[in-house]
Every structure is written in structure tokens, then in C-alpha cells.
């Protein structure tokens, strides 16, 4: 369970995040959506203790992310951002093995190896296991980093714009994989997404943000309507439906 408690982040006089209360619980995919600068990534990175809040805090399974030992948190919550060293010359397997570091501190047990293999399987990376990251394509590298997070085997997985720089096919594959994390492994997945339609189709819950505040929260069908979209994105859009899920025709906006 992830509980946000009167969380505020300011840079100087600018408040980039003001989230009094938000609870994410149970298996499923929650999408954070909003325009650039809405505070969604800030919220995610604070929850993943990569960023210090100005005030307030986030509890992960009751552990305060600002005070709990980082090593302990590493067994409960995993976060993946885009800012990793992409030219690092590690094999895919080596990278994924580092996902077990919080438990093994570098000495892998049989159990650890099993989980590493499972993560490689999940991401369909077995054939690349011995390849070096600097020799892979962007999409494959992205999957390798996600596999490391899967190997970390935490109940909570936070992903910051995992579809960035992926082409359509790889983006679709990644979203399907993210669904599996929730459906097969029972994880609480929180994912920052740019594309509202991807969120509408894949997420169980959408948290829409604007100017650092949560403006709508609920199932896609309840959150996604024309007035809310106007409020969130500042854009007049048409909303239609496809297989019972809402579809936002944002490219028709004038």
C-alpha cells in the first residue's frame, strides 16, 4: 500500500506538487497522467525516495520513505527512471542480477538466480541475456532495465514514462508486460504516462494531475470525459468509446 500524506514539493516560490492525500492499494495498474509540469513525475520520484519532499511524506507499507532505511525500502518498492547510464558495458543478465542486490548484497543464492531467470523470461530477454547493453537497441535496453526491476521482486513498482523513446510496437509490448506485472505477479504498479489513450486502455485507475494537484481520480471510464480532459490538458477534445474503454481524440482539437 502506498499512502501519500500532505505531500508538498516546492522549488523556491513555485509549488510543483501539493497532494494532501492519495492511497494506492492492491494489485493493479495506476496511471499518472497530466500535461508537462503537472507534478506526476515529481510525485513518483518522491514515492521512490529519489527526491526529498519539502514537507509531508509517502508511506510504503507503513514505512516512511523519507526516514526508513533505503535498503529496507528497496525490498518493498522499485522505481525506474530514464536517467541511467546507457553506455554501461554490462550484459543484460548482469544488470538484471543487480536487481537482487537488496537481498543478496552481491552474493546470489539459487533463489536469486531463479528470480533473475524468471525476470528474463517475463521480458522475453533470454536470447539477449549474454549481450551487452551498449550493443542493444533502445527498446531492448529499456526492457533490460524493466527486467531488473522485476527481478527486484517488490510489491510496488513505479515506472516513470517507460514508453519514452519506444516505437509503437515496443510501446505496446511494454504496456502488455506492465499489465502482466499486475495480473500475474499481483504487483501494485504506478506508471507515469504521456499518452492518455494508452492509460485509458491499460490502466485500472487513472490519477489526473494539473499544476501539482490531483484533479481527477478513478476508473478510466469515470475520469475520462470532455470537461475533465479540458481541465487536465487545457484542450478541447472529443471523447469516444472503443470496446467499452474511452478514447480521447485529442488530435482533433483546434
Amino acid at each position: 500500500m502506498i499512502e501519500v500524506r500532505s505531500l508538498v514539493k516546492r522549488y523556491g516560490d513555485t509549488t510543483v506538487l501539493d497532494c494532501p492525500d492519495l492511497t494506492l492499494d492492491g494489485a493493479g495498474v495506476t496511471a499518472l497522467v497530466g500535461a508537462n509540469g503537472a507534478g506526476k513525475s515529481t510525485l513518483l520520484t518522491i514515492a521512490g525516495r529519489l527526491l526529498e519532499p519539502t514537507s509531508g511524506t509517502v508511506l510504503v507499507d507503513g514505512h516512511d520513505v523519507t526516514t526508513a532505511p533505503s535498503r529496507e525500502l528497496a525490498a518493498r518498492v522499485a522505481i525506474l527512471r530514464q536517467e541511467n547510464n546507457l553506455a554501461v558495458r554490462l550484459t543484460v543478465r548482469e544488470l538484471v542480477e543487480f536487481g537482487r542486490f537488496p537481498y543478496s548484497q552481491g552474493r546470489l543464492t539459487d533463489d536469486d538466480h531463479r528470480l533473475v531467470d524468471r525476470a528474463l523470461d517475463t521480458l522475453e530477454l533470454h536470447e539477449f541475456a549474454a549481450r551487452r547493453l551498449d550493443e542493444l537497441s533502445g527498446g531492448q535496453r529499456q526492457r533490460a532495465f524493466i527486467a531488473a526491476v522485476v527481478a527486484q521482486d517488490t510489491d510496488h513498482v513505479l515506472l516513470d514514462e517507460p514508453l519514452n523513446n519506444l516505437d509503437l510496437r515496443h510501446a505496446a509490448q511494454s504496456m502488455a508486460m506492465i499489465r502482466r506485472l499486475a495480473d500475474e505477479f499481483g504487483k501494485t504498479v504506478v506508471v507515469v504516462l504521456h499518452d492518455i489513450n494508452v492509460a485509458a486502455h491499460h490502466a485500472d485507475r487513472i490519477v489526473a494531475m494539473r499544476s501539482g494537484r490531483v484533479v481527477a481520480d478513478g476508473e478510466p471510464s469515470t475520469v475520462i470525459d470532455e470537461p475533465t480532459m479540458r481541465e487536465v490538458f487545457g484542450l478541447d477534445v472529443e471523447v469516444t468509446e472503443h470496446h467499452g474503454r474511452p478514447v480521447v481524440l485529442h488530435f482533433l482539437a483546434s
Binding site: P69, E72, A74, L80, E83, N84, N85, V88, F98, P102
Partner: peptide, 10 residues
């Protein structure tokens, strides 16, 4: 590998 990656692993 990166600060974020390291912090994430505790």
C-alpha cells in the same frame, strides 16, 4: 549505472 538505479537498490 546511475544514481537513481543505485538508490532504488537501497
Amino acid at each position: 549505472i546511475g544514481r537513481d538505479f543505485a538508490v532504488n537498490l537501497g
